[in-house]
Write a protein that binds this DNA or RNA. Sequence first.
DNA 1: CTATAAATTGCTAACGGTAGCATTTGTTTT
DNA 2: AAAACAAATGCTACCGTTAGCAATTTATAG
Lengths: 345, 345
Amino acid sequence: MNEPQDKNSTINDVARLSGVSKRTVSRVINKSPKVGKSTRDRIQKIIDDLGYSPNAQARGLASRRSYLLGMIYDNPDALYINDVQRGVLSICREFGYELVVHPCDMTSDSLISDAVNFANRSKLDGVIVLPPVSENNDLAGALGKAGVNYVRLASIALDTAKHVVISNERSAAAAMAEYLVTLGHRRIGYIAGPQGMRSTRERLEGFCDALEIHGCKPDLDMIALGDYSFESGINCTRELLANENPPTAIFASNDEMAVGAINAAKDMGLDVPNDLSIAGFDDSILASRIMPSLTTIRRPVQEMARFATSKLISSIDGREEEAKTPIMLVPSLIERSSTRAIDLT
Amino acid sequence: MNEPQDKNSTINDVARLSGVSKRTVSRVINKSPKVGKSTRDRIQKIIDDLGYSPNAQARGLASRRSYLLGMIYDNPDALYINDVQRGVLSICREFGYELVVHPCDMTSDSLISDAVNFANRSKLDGVIVLPPVSENNDLAGALGKAGVNYVRLASIALDTAKHVVISNERSAAAAMAEYLVTLGHRRIGYIAGPQGMRSTRERLEGFCDALEIHGCKPDLDMIALGDYSFESGINCTRELLANENPPTAIFASNDEMAVGAINAAKDMGLDVPNDLSIAGFDDSILASRIMPSLTTIRRPVQEMARFATSKLISSIDGREEEAKTPIMLVPSLIERSSTRAIDLT
DNA sequence: CTATAAATTGCTAACGGTAGCATTTGTTTT
DNA sequence: AAAACAAATGCTACCGTTAGCAATTTATAG
């Protein structure tokens, strides 16, 4: 297209060249309606010719708006971060915001001041907090107190109004358990996530709930404690399978562990799904690539990220009602080839 | 820790409270040595109590430094973006920079102005351009002309001094071809990437080079045109295997396609690696999770991203020599279970 | 053709820092 | 003790925009 801007040129240059005051130039930059058509066109032309684009810092300084959003997260290797980021970015682009990504360490005790400083110092217009960091209520409180606009992604309703419920993981896990029961499985192994994480609890509870409802009391022997890692999936599967009364199906609470389970099962000479059904949770890229492809739960992560970002922007723009309207997207069960009905013959 | 800052408090507040001029406070903030010990301590105390942290925008406006770096990339679903981002972030954190991520559309003809605007408008101190966008020399030229500090990640030496050679993909591909030949394979299928991308050409050339050197002239029938996608891996494999004289090994030029190849082979009743060896390129997360695990090429992506970022910061700080020193990290061949020596019995 | 309202446009004080230059205070040197 | 120099601190003009309020021009009404 036209020449990219000369790193120089300020609003003053535009004003001088077009023979108007900078106040007027400012108006056309900000699309104020109160500028004469001819003046506007003339100025716009000069802006284009010059390749002028307003200095975001000066602008932010004067208007208290940076058009910068922040994303706070831990666990950078989790595949879903990617999806969230993409969702956030798509809305950012739409509304003219840029995104500053800020990984952090959940276990650090400077987590809170780090997050608040990040938002404040960079003069972000708002921040999006991802799980599991989003589960930290103190952080949320500190952000609020510091006057930072924020929105949290979470797996369940949190206690403040400012959040987005990404999905009811509890019922999603219950749905998977129910699905396995429906396939005829009665002894179902479960591989849990790391202690202390909300999602770990939610998913496990959902699993247990469903089993109870269907009359197969969850057996403690059938619950293995993993940590969402591939290796823990392998170990837990071995453990479950070593049971004197082994499960006919294993529900791993995330895909990484489910893939570990598939590997472990194969190593032990078991055929998936004929000898053992395996289900995961996340619908990560792995789920569709592995053989057999993995039955899993898909959380609409990207969509939720988009909603969250929209809400954040609404809030920034002062449309609080809009920002507060709770949103819940439901996860869906994706049936693939790693599960099948138990052979009753 | 101590109270997170009140969203208010400026340098003026600090100055007033400590009874000095803002000039002196500014000195303390910027660790200027020319401040009396006692004064410095007193001011620092007040800064801490207040939880004051300087406004990045005002600071940037006055000093022409934003401590913001940008990352420009296309292809947000490529798994390596993640790794790059993590590498970049680790250095950003170390030097006190924040990272603004900016996906773009390589095919758009506003790509260049978009990129330049991004860097200029946000007053970024520098940007890191990822492949394949980094292959666009016009973009690089425009950035330079606009006075934007930048560094490119690339698979081969590009024509300007400002870049980082991430790896010699050509020789890496050659190494893999050689490895397969060493295993006794003579008919080796190759699945290429999308037309027009530098990496596609580099890898293919490396492959052909190695074959020629080892006296097995590359056969056109043995080269299938993929596009780095899983599906294309499946299709190309079917195509290669349908050949009247099918290959005993397939080298897919990325992991996604290699995994597609494994799936296709299994569907056709072939055992990998006994009936067919398959190799990939990237060492993505898939490579270690798939069964059989994938022999592939690992590019030190994160390390390169770190180097690139360090160079960018060196350049920002005016240490041009340092910034210009070329760096090349070599990819390594990771031998896993998807390849094996041909059975010569 | 005034008077008044409406539409345009201009003037200018912030916004919160940075950094050159000036000034004040403290130390040495002679 | 005065001169000369160094260290510490202060004053202030920007940096590039925004936006309140004033001023000017144009349109509408009486």
